[in-house]
């Protein structure tokens, strides 16, 4: 990882970014002055929210919805199987 970044945002519409290394709790995301700090451990490759996401709202990655939030997600929280599910019930 270059010194400048610790996460990658794949599209400007995205409300999650991907960790480029293991991020400990309390680490600022190095991303255009968005001022988000990790609230928990974000393992390498995992998604972290950069905005508040309401239950039922789309989680956006690559600029498109990859699923819906199962519960309220705060900026800095990890987004994975416990709080994100596929858009179509039938993919579960």
């Amino acid at each position: 990882m270059s010194e400048e970044t610790n996460v990658i945002r794949l599209h400007e519409k995205d409300n999650v970014v991907t960790a480029l290394c293991d991020l400990a709790p309390g680490v600022p995301l190095k991303l255009d002055e968005i001022g988000v700090v990790t609230r928990e451990l974000i393992p390498f490759g995992y998604k972290v929210a950069i905005q508040s996401i309401a239950p039922g709202a789309y989680v956006m990655k690559y600029g498109v919805a990859i699923g819906v939030a199962l519960r309220p997600i705060s900026p800095g929280e990890v987004v994975h199987t416990h709080n994100l599910k596929s858009l179509a019930e039938r993919y579960e």
Binding site: A19, G45, I66, G67, T81, S86, L87
Partner: peptide, 11 residues
Amino acid sequence: GGLTTIEEKSL
């Protein structure tokens, strides 16, 4: 490895 949904993997 950090992938959550089939949509995410497929993209």
